[in-house]
Design a protein around this nucleic acid. Structure first.
Lengths: 211, 211
DNA sequence: GTATGTGAACCACTTCACAGCA
DNA sequence: TGCTGTGAAGTGGTTCACATAC
């Protein structure tokens, strides 16, 4: 199987997955690239090309079986299983993340939470006892978590990420507003709503130009 | 001035801005594209090319004056002013957004919050009285908010977005996990942490391939 | 007849490499 | 000498268009 799948393609697969899951809930059995593309704002050719990196899932003249394609995508993305995650940073943002109900239905579960603040360590938050970051090295082996969520202040984010990498974490969802560094075998996704706002203001700042 | 600036370029400017602001706080006066690129994981040529769309801000042999470049970028992005935003959806997620302390320092202020739930309407949250979405049309003209944040359940997100567009909103930060539609003159940014997780699992699912 | 899968053509962004300026 | 600004070259992703299969 191919080693040369563009990263943008991988980034689109979860979107397809999300749309297919919706179609399935709506009771649809079959969908074609045209309709799927229309719903997502993506060209039909794009969808067909993206899928073709992984196999031939459609039927000419008909389209794609929703259930089948959804299963294939789950397989491809590695989301047939549950994934355990650890959270570092249990401040306001961290608590919101712990309370976010969008992870569990998709198979992502936060199994431990860490903080530096001694006033917070020991607290029960959403059914989890907050542990000290000092214990990270000790606790991680038992947790079997390859994914971490970082919700600490910008100033401490890089050191936390370094520590997590040291513990063998392979994917990081970073909420701190910094450009984080990690070895090439560790994936990082940054979530910073302000960046999105700041790029949108460019376009609206004065009856501005539409793309 | 050019009408043909790639959207990817615009998306990078806030990152440059963030890094320059940090440099400024650290007391640095000058930076060259090499160092800035190193910090951000971007090639120096990329930075120079991106900036060249907007003008000539550097000095040969020296680099860029941090303060000057920062000001230019603020100007370009339209973030010299404050921006007012409205929030729709004051559930768990909405409350977390209201409490998020990352917006204000960057000049983004939530000036009103709306919800459908009569049990929530009237509540004071973070100093704002929650209004009914039914009042959206009435309230919006006074608020002078061109940006909206959507934090309602997926099932209601599109109708809320339609209503906001109707009210003249020009940019939407969408936290609902759907592919939202809007007219071309309205910008949308989606924030869905699950999509990020699902694309990362592709790479880590079994001692997986690094990019 | 209809919609997929895919090489080929196209387009857009990135990187190169060097002239030009401090 | 050192680093920017930028045409030109290169690269990679998107779209086209049609043979293929149902």
């Amino acid at each position: 199987m191919a080693l040369e799948i563009p990263e943008v393609v991988i980034d689109r697969l979860p979107i397809y997955t999300r749309a297919l899951a919706l179609l399935q809930r709506q009771g649809r059995n079959v969908v074609n690239s045209q309709e799927l593309g229309g719903r997502l704002g993506v060209t039909p050719a794009q969808i067909r090309k993206d899928l073709s990196y992984f196999g031939r899932f459609g039927k000419q003249g008909r389209g794609y079986n929703v259930k089948r394609l959804l299963e294939e995508l789950h397989q491809i993305l590695g989301i047939t299983r549950e994934w355990s995650m650890v959270l570092v940073g249990v401040g306001q943002l961290g608590r919101a993340i712990l309370g976010y109900d969008g992870f569990a239905p998709q198979g992502f579960r936060i199994v431990a939470a860490f903080d530096v603040d001694p006033d917070i360590v020991g607290d029960m938050v959403n059914g989890l006892e907050v542990k000290s970051v000092a214990q990270l090295q000790d606790e991680m082996p038992d947790l079997d978590a390859q994914i971490a969520i970082v919700a600490v202040p910008a100033a401490n984010a890089q050191e936390v990420i370094d520590a997590l990498v040291e513990c063998g974490v392979k994917a990081i969802l970073n909420y701190a507003p910094i450009a984080a560094h990690a070895p090439p075998d560790v994936r990082i996704r940054d979530i910073d709503p302000v960046l999105g706002l700041q790029s949108m203001t460019f376009y609206i700042k004065e009856g501005g130009t539409t793309s």
